[in-house]
Write a protein that binds this DNA or RNA. Structure first.
Length: 370
DNA sequence: TAGGCGTGGAT
DNA sequence: TATCCAAGCCT
């Protein structure tokens, strides 16, 4: 007796490409059907889109393009400017590598992105997916482009039982078996568009799918269970104290985080150690022990909560106003109120700023109205 | 090789 | 509210 797989047709790339020609998404970084893609824009967008939604990346892409119209402009910019523009987008090593990559393209390749996958792979922040994507989309090279969308599509097409991430090599090999020799860039983008709009993680719209017929998971009716995934570790909660120090003129005490690691190179208010063992119910004197300077600390009501990829964070906020002439402690600096928005402040610390301002705000506006 | 590394939106 | 997840890379 024949298995289900033997009765199914092979996935036809031309069916997918025909679908793509009718339904391709118009995206800020994507060339029109009759245009040649700009490698700089393809690269910039691919970095921004790593683990990031199209919606979130869009405004950042346009802003970057405005500030840095080409790779030379980006390479010539201080890293600090890049981090400021990237603030809020997350995964900040991408911004640091973006800058390093721009400089590498200038130095190693005379300012022109290489078209060979192996050369792309050698650039900072460019891994197997991104190298293949740039080669295929920007240079029409026959690279096998496998991202999360493609993994989902292919795991369903072939009902791959192996769990992620171990199944990745198998999925890439399977993708290679269905990739056409022609239009590699369009095929890559078509597969990703299919995953993003039809073959979605939940409730895939199989009735609209150009690969409905050859899909083994669909034939079995358990398409939503692919790709198989191992259970993920639970997320601990760390706690810590943030110190909001203001001068009478509204300037706030800020510092820069170490250049690598979590939020590397980004701006922060001084904070103490973040740990599961910190007790936010401790008395004020205890919470003030890690303060950057001695002051008349006041604990703000409430807690700032934030969720990172691998832990959650609860921050108590201690606030103080210090004399105008107070020097910034070593490693810290005063940032004028109007300059704070432009700082490389990640979202977690924008929450701290908002929390502190919200506490001070009503009192200020009240006294101002009197 | 598995864990570090952000964020905000959808369900 | 809790969980999942979105065009991954680096070590």
């Amino acid at each position: 007796m024949a298995t289900a797989a033997e009765t199914l047709p092979a996935p036809d790339p031309s069916a997918l490409l025909a679908w793509y020609d009718r339904h391709r998404r118009r995206l800020p970084w994507r060339a029109e059907a009759d245009e040649r893609a700009d490698p700089y824009r393809v690269w910039l967008s691919e970095i921004m889109l790593q683990q990031t939604t199209v919606k979130a990346a869009g405004p950042y892409f346009l802003r970057f393009l405005q500030h840095f119209p080409d790779v030379a402009a980006l390479a010539a910019s201080p890293l600090e400017e890049v981090l400021k523009l990237w603030a809020g987008l997350g995964y900040y090593s991408r911004a640091r590598n973006l800058h390093a990559c721009a400089q590498a393209v200038m130095e190693r390749h005379g300012g022109a992105f290489p078209s060979a996958e192996v050369d792309l792979l050698a650039l900072p922040g460019v891994g197997p997916y991104t190298a293949a994507a740039i080669a295929a989309i920007a240079f029409d090279r026959p690279a096998v482009v496998v991202d999360g969308n493609v993994e989902r599509v292919v795991s369903r097409l072939f009902a791959v039982e192996a769990a992620m991430p171990g199944a990745k090599p198998r999925l890439k090999a399977l993708t290679a078996t269905i990739a056409p020799a022609k239009r590699p860039g369009d095929f890559a983008q078509a597969t990703m568009d299919l995953g993003a709009t039809i073959c979605t993680p939940r409730k895939p719209a199989c009735a609209l799918c150009p690969w409905d017929d050859p899909c083994l998971a669909r034939a079995r009716g358990d398409q939503e269970s692919f790709p198989r995934k191992a259970a993920k570790a639970d997320r601990p909660t760390r706690r810590g104290v943030a110190y909001w120090v203001e001068r009478p003129d509204g300037a706030a005490l800020m510092r820069s985080r170490p250049p690598r690691g979590l939020l590397g190179g980004m701006t922060e208010p001084p904070t103490g150690v973040w740990s599961e063992t910190v007790d936010l119910a401790a008395p004020l004197g205890r919470l003030a022990e890690e303060a950057p300077l001695s002051a008349d600390w006041r604990r703000l009501p409430g807690v700032v909560t934030h969720v990172f990829s691998h832990f959650a964070l609860d921050l108590a906020v201690l606030a103080a106003v210090v004399p105008q002439a107070t020097p910034a402690p070593a490693g810290a600096r005063w940032v004028a109120r109007r300059d704070l928005d432009g700082e490389a402040l990640p979202s977690v610390f924008r929450k701290v700023v908002a929390h502190a301002r919200a506490d001070a705000g009503p009192a200020r506006s009240k006294s101002a109205s009197l």
